[in-house]
């Protein structure tokens, strides 16, 4: 039986409006079987409002190597970490520190 099986990657959405995140993988004969099995395999200890299954062969990836992909580390304005001090600065200039109000 194992020879006829396809590997599926399973993605689950925990709450409405949230993105699907990778939950794991499984083998099944087809997508419908993968959906049925994924519900028991991945919804046992965690609740999802929706799950997707994707055949692993449908996934393509950028070349991986030693160097990280994406922006150079010094270009901090491109990544969230670069704004860590924003709340402090906002307070110093008289705001109430609620950075979410922009």
């Amino acid at each position: 039986m194992a020879d006829d099986l396809t590997v599926f990657e399973v993605f689950g959405r925990e709450r409405k409006g949230e993105p699907h995140r990778h939950a794991g993988s499984l083998r099944a004969a087809d997508a419908q079987m993968a959906v049925v099995l994924a519900q028991e395999l991945f919804c046992r200890r965690k609740e999802y409002v929706q799950i997707w299954v994707v055949p692993r062969t449908a996934i393509h990836w950028a070349p991986d190597g030693d160097a990280p992909l994406g922006p150079e580390p010094q270009r901090v304005y491109r990544i969230g970490e670069g704004y860590r001090g924003t709340v402090e600065k906002w307070k110093r200039f008289g705001g109430d520190g609620d950075a979410s109000r922009g």
Binding site: M1, A2, L5, L26, R27, A28, V36, L37, E40, L41
Partner: peptide, 12 residues
């Protein structure tokens, strides 16, 4: 018949 089914059926 397959390990995935072991988990699924045990859960049932």
């Amino acid at each position: 018949p397959l390990i995935e089914e072991d988990v699924a059926f045990a859960s049932i």
